[in-house]
Each structure stands twice: as structure tokens, then as C-alpha cells.
Simulated assay, not measured.
Amino acid sequence: MKINWGTSIVIAFVLFASFILYFVLTVQSSSKYDNELVVEEYYKHDAKFGDEMVRIQNAENLKLKPVITDISDAISIEFPNTFIPKDIKGKVSLYRPSNKKLDFEIPISLSSSTLLIPKKSLVGGRWDINMEWQYDGKLYLTKEVIYIK
């Protein structure tokens, strides 16, 4: 049987479409390929973006800012000595962009000016740190990206 060029083009197109359909179905149904959003309620989060920018600007306007550093066995968040540690309230959120299941939050409760987050709970790689805190009735937001080895 002889196949003309028109039939071979149709066969090639059907094979290509079958491959694409197989690939899309495999990626959508397999748990190995994660396609989650970073934030669950994206649009609600986006609507509050103006408030977030005000809190970031409040943090930028501080003369002495909190310092987030990567030390040997922990992540250190050090507030300036001008702040009264017990009056600082808020939370530190650690986001792992590659895996939502590793995200967690730590409340800010200080007796000294330093908050330590042990590295034993952190997997190596990129971590986004969002520190939402309040001092003297004013809201602040500090964002930092660190890489754990």
C-alpha cells in the first residue's frame, strides 16, 4: 500500500496532537508536578496590596531596622536596641517557593532583642521571609530572601 503526502501529514498531525494531549493529562494528574499558587486566595491578597506597601514603607522609614542574618545553626532576627522587646508583636512567615508544604509561621515573642529560628526545621535552598510586626501602634512589614546551604 502506498501512502501519499496528504495522508502522511494527517498521520503526523494526529501523532503530534496525541503526544501533546498525553503530556498535558500526565502533568495535570500527577502529584509529582506541583502547579499550586503561592497564595491560596490570590485576589483577596492582591486587593490588600496598598496596605502592604504602607507597612513596607513604614519599615523603610526606620532609622534603625531589624536585621535578618544567616548564622551557623539558625536564622537570627535582631531588632534595634531602641525598641522594647516585649512591646514588639507579630509573626515571621517562612515561605518555600518550590514547596508549599514546607511553609510555616513563628509568632514574635521576645524577651531580648533577638529572635532565633533554628535551621533544623529548614530544608536547603531559597526561603522568603516575611516579617509582619507591630511596635508602638504602627504596623511594619520586612521582607528578605535567604539561601540555606
Rank of each mutant, 00 (worst) to 15 (best):
K86R: 11
D128C: 01
K89H: 10
E40P: 07
T26M: 12
E36R: 11
W127E: 11
Q134W: 00
I108N: 03
Y22P: 04
V54T: 07
S109T: 15
M131C: 02
K119L: 13
K44N: 13
L15N: 07
E144W: 05
K32E: 12
S8A: 15
V145H: 01
T114E: 07
L15A: 11
L21D: 08
V14F: 11
K119N: 08
S93H: 00
V54R: 05
S18L: 09
I108R: 12
E52N: 12
V123G: 01
T142W: 08
K65I: 05
Q134H: 01
V10T: 12
V67F: 00
R55A: 11
M131A: 10
I68F: 07
V54M: 05
S111F: 08
I88V: 12
V14W: 14
R126H: 01
F16P: 02
A74V: 05
P118K: 08
D51R: 12
P97Q: 06
A59V: 13
Y43K: 05
G125S: 03
V54C: 02
F79Y: 09
H45C: 10
Q57K: 14
D51L: 12
T142R: 03
L25E: 08
I71D: 07
P80L: 05
L110Q: 04
K44R: 12
V145A: 04
Y140S: 07
I68S: 10
K65L: 03
T142Q: 03
E40F: 09
Q134R: 00
V24N: 12
L15S: 15
P107H: 13
K89I: 11
N58T: 01
S29T: 14
Y95E: 05
I88D: 12
L94V: 06
S29C: 05
V14T: 08
I3R: 13
T82S: 06
P118G: 00
D51Y: 10
A17C: 14
M1I: 14
R55S: 11
I71K: 12
E60V: 02
M53Y: 10
S76T: 00
V123L: 14
Y135M: 07
D73L: 07
N58C: 00
A74L: 04
R55N: 03
P97F: 04
G50C: 01
S98F: 13
V14G: 05
K138L: 04
E36S: 07
K48T: 08
Y42F: 03
D51G: 12
I75Y: 02
L37G: 00
Y33V: 15
S8H: 08
L62S: 09
L122N: 07
Y135G: 01
V123I: 15
I11W: 10
V123E: 09
P80T: 03
F83W: 15
E144C: 01
F16D: 04
K63W: 00
L102H: 04
V67W: 05
F13I: 13
P118M: 05
I75R: 06
I77S: 01
D136M: 06
G6A: 06
I9D: 13
K44D: 06
K101Y: 14
V14E: 13
R55D: 14
L102E: 14
